[in-house]
Amino acid sequence: MLGGGNGCNGQECSFDIATNQTLRVFNTTTRLVTDALFHCFNQFTAYAGDRGYNSNGVCLPPVTVTHPNGVPELEYFKCHAGGMSVTFGNWARVGLPARDQYDKPYTQVVVDYWTSFARNLNSNPDVEYIHIREYWDTLSQITVSGPWEAVKTSAPAMMELQWNSVMVPFPDAKQCAVLGQSLDALL
């Protein structure tokens, strides 16, 4: 391959990944930085999708006799992007089964949070709008869960999306600080 800024001076060269120490250091560094930046800053989003689906069979809630499709309220490994079908409101359309009586109303609430944010940069749905549209499940849930609060530097918290959702402190702030990615890393 032609080398650009890799020490080949525009000449044709090849690398043996097993013996090229510089390339191994570069790959390791890139992996660590990527993991730290994306893991710590984006994990909250992935974590928030607790009731998410995942069709690969690994990230599914425990199955019980009464819940053959899994119990989303029980703790289980949540895969990144497992909540996409919920976010876009199409889990049933793509053939995923309802796991309990809350999957449909939960999906409606998540879609209402997202569309509210897209409409006015505030995740809290307008109560009057929800009432006029007769979105009773969303109205009930936002009443129980309370408002989705803006992040405060004095007490940073996030909305843990679940049935019932709740504001909770950032769960992995200490882990991120250990990685050198504390909450004030961008300040």
Rank of each mutant, 00 (worst) to 15 (best):
G82Q: 01
L96Y: 09
V109I: 10
D184V: 04
A48H: 00
Y102C: 03
T29V: 14
F117L: 15
S85Q: 05
Y47P: 00
N56R: 03
N164A: 06
T22C: 03
H80S: 05
P105H: 07
F44P: 03
A81F: 10
V86R: 04
N69Q: 05
L139K: 11
D16P: 03
W136Q: 09
P125K: 01
L161G: 00
W91C: 10
F117P: 04
P68G: 09
N20A: 14
V58F: 07
D50I: 06
A36S: 11
P72F: 04
D100W: 02
P61T: 01
H67S: 15
F38I: 12
Y102V: 05
T28I: 11
N90H: 09
G70I: 01
K174Y: 07
C13E: 14
N27E: 14
T87P: 00
T107M: 08
N9T: 05
F44S: 04
L183F: 14
V63A: 11
P171S: 03
L139V: 12
S182P: 00
T45A: 09
L186T: 15
D172F: 08
P61G: 04
W148E: 00
A157R: 14
E12T: 11
K78M: 13
P171E: 07
T29D: 10
H39Q: 08
P97Q: 14
V178L: 13
N124G: 02
T138P: 05
L60M: 04
G83P: 00
T64A: 14
V178F: 07
C59N: 13
T34G: 12
Q141N: 08
D184G: 07
F26W: 12
E12N: 10
G89C: 04
E149W: 04
S55T: 12
L183M: 12
N27Q: 12
T143P: 05
I130Q: 12
R51W: 04
T143R: 12
G10S: 11
D35H: 15
T19A: 08
L186H: 09
F117T: 07
N9I: 08
L23T: 04
S154A: 08
R31T: 13
T29N: 14
Q141H: 12
G10E: 07
S182W: 02
F38L: 11
L2C: 02
Y102F: 10
Y129L: 15
E134L: 12
V168Q: 14
D100Y: 03
E73G: 05
T153Y: 06
D184L: 06
G82F: 01
Y135D: 14
R99F: 02
P68Y: 05
C79Q: 06
R99K: 08
M158D: 05
A98F: 13
A173M: 09
F41P: 02
P72E: 06
L161A: 01
K104T: 13
W148P: 00
N164V: 10
V144M: 15
E75R: 09
G52T: 01
N27P: 02
C176K: 02
